[in-house]
Amino acid sequence: MVKEPILISATAHYSMGGIPTNIRGQVRKNRDELVEGFYAAGECACVSVHGANRLGANSVLEALFFGRHVGKEMVKDIDNLDFGEVSEADAYNMVQEINYILRNNGIESVSKIRDELQESMTENAGVFRTEETLKKQLEILDSLRKRFKHIRIEDKSRLFNTELQEAIELGHMLDYAKFIVEGALFRKESRGSHYREDYPKRDDENFLKHTLAYMDKDGNISIETMDVTLGKFEVKERVY
């Protein structure tokens, strides 16, 4: 038998959590309110059908069922919805985000920051994490976010600019990473695919709750919780 090494690496297969919605796909603004006219479905959404860990192949429920179901709900609502008000300032922010990346003349490379983000997140905020690794990751994130302000891209064109797209995505990944790390720090227990080596037990008394996280303009995260509606199944440990 010939033995040959093959390269393996971790890959993101699915994201637990996401944009919080109710069962009709309406996006939650907070515990009690909805954002009018804003719907989410599929893997970006969190209807909370899976709990803290999705079982293999079960994203079909999100992708197929909720895609169809939420679409139908939107059709029901659409006649009663008005366009929201948009200011020039809103549009300006979006144009600014793009122009900043296009015009910024820094020294940092998008792919290098992204590599460091991916590697450090796997290392410090993967399935197994502790307060120590998570705090360390917060520092790393802060430094990466600072460096992101000094990126420079080669492609300045408006034509099929995938380098611009990658840079915008990296900015969002840096935000999203912070949600993941702060959420994990907050949850001092182990549940589903979140395993805190410093808190290896599930703690229903304090944490049988959804985490709702908010980011302010300066990138600071605040956390709220929301009650879990339990269905006909009791919460159990996954033992296989």
Binding site: S109, V110, S111, I153, E154, D155, S157, F160, N161, T162, E163
Partner: peptide, 8 residues
């Protein structure tokens, strides 16, 4: 990622 970011 390493040589020419504009390659599409």
């Amino acid at each position: 990622w390493e040589h020419s970011g504009s390659l599409s």
